[in-house]
Every structure is written in C-alpha cells, then in structure tokens.
Design a protein around this nucleic acid. Structure first.
Lengths: 112, 112
DNA sequence: TTTAATGTTCGAATATTGTCAAACAATAAA
DNA sequence: TTTATTGTTTGACAATATTCGAACATTAAA
C-alpha cells in the first residue's frame, strides 16, 4: 500500500499548519527560495562554511522583493516565528539562513 | 555545499504558494492527513487497490472535523482547486484521494 | 412519486493578513 | 558628536479567509 505521510510525525497539527502558512505568501516563499538557492553566480548570497548554510542579509533579500522595508521585516519575523529561518546580527546587517532541521522535517512529512 | 531546494523546479512560485496556502488551514491539513493516513484500524478509510491510493468520502471526512457541511465543502473545493486532491462521485457519496504526483513534487521541493 | 441522505452554492458576519507611512532603535562612519 | 545605514515597531487600511444558516441539487430508497 502506498503511504505518503510519515507516521512518526511528532509535530502538532497547528504548528505544521503555521509552517505552511508562512510559506503560503509569495514574498515569504521567495525569501525562502532566495535563502536556499542563493549562491548562484550574480547573487549576493554567501555560503557560511562554519554553519554549512547559505546566508543573506535582510537588506539584500528586500532588494529582490517589491515591497517596503516594514513589510520585509514583518515577513522575516513571521518566518522566524515558525522556525523556518534563523537570524544573527553582523554589524549593521542581519544575516538570515534557513534552519536545516525544518527542511528535513518537511521532507520527512511528504515521504513514505 | 548543502542545498535544500531542487533546482529543476518547474512550478511557478505563485502556484507553489497556493499549494502551501491550501495546507495552511488546520481543517484542510487534517483532511490531507486523514486522506494520507486513513486506513488504520477503526477508521472509515478505504484502500483503493485499482488506483493505489487511500480514499474517504466527504461525509466521513466531515465527521472528523468540527465544522459544518458548507465549510467542509469549501475546504474540499480549495484542496481540489490547487490540485492536492481529486474527487469522484460514487452513488450518494463523493470519494476523495490525494494526488500522488503533488506529494512527489513537494518531497522533491524539500530535497537536495 | 415521495422521502431521505449527501453535498454545493449563496450571502453575510467576523477574523486574519498584507501592506504602507511615520517614527523609532541600533550600529557604523565621518 | 553628528550623520548615514540598516532594520523594527506602531497604527491604520484594504483585501482575503473562515465560518455559518438557508436554500438548492443530486442520488438512492421507500
């Protein structure tokens, strides 16, 4: 029998719905995509070797979206609230990256 | 370098966001979960061998949710609009199942 | 042909979301 | 210390989403 969902899913349904809600807004989804495919030539993405993740500054993310700074800030806050991204101040800028664990959980969710 | 997103992702960003939006409502997410883990003992789910998918009737799905019939109907319509589920009338009832292709695309999206 | 069961559509009420402008905060540079 | 850069918070408004009751549609059963 084909089964698509993992049985050993420990995350509450409300929390999972919240994660999908965060990814349901086109601008937030773009941020997510920028952070997970950001290191192509011509982009400003940086591969952080020590953390083994791609990072971008919030300002550079904002330049890729056609919304104002408050809106970018709001979306970043929302992505962080549900645990999709993590942030860290670096001087004037704030670096962002996607939490690898969340990706792994989502892949597991859609597997088996 | 770690990469989480598939590069050969052909789906438009708006369409992908729409799929996540469909899964972002707790009641719709429950429907999705009922349809993908529905055949445990004690449930009304049916494994359709010819289609190789789990199916449930809309009425039985509704009994698991604490909302009225119009709301269930609305959610089913939304899940079908974005391509997550498919439906088919069987006598008085309407059978639902999750489209296997969508699951595969979502797993691919969160892979690599 | 009635009646029952299952599901949809419509219209409306309420709640949530996305966005901006203005003001504020924190850091770095001059 | 003054100014520039980067990002956040607040308050407001418009657009969407969620849900329901009432009415309607479709199929099966009596």
């Amino acid at each position: 029998m084909v089964r698509y969902m993992s049985n050993n899913n420990t995350m509450p349904i409300e929390q999972l719905a919240d994660i999908f809600k965060a990814l349901s807004n086109p601008n937030r989804l773009k941020i997510f995509l920028l952070l997970t495919t950001c290191c192509s030539p011509g982009t400003v993405g940086i591969y952080d070797k020590s953390a083994d993740v791609d990072t971008m500054f919030i300002g550079d993310l904002g330049k890729e979206l056609e919304v104002g700074k408050p809106t970018v800030s709001h979306h970043i806050k929302e992505l962080r609230r549900v645990g999709i991204i993590r942030t860290e101040r670096r001087g004037q800028n704030i670096a962002c990256w996607v939490d690898p664990d969340i990706i792994e959980q989502l892949r597991t969710f859609f597997t088996r």
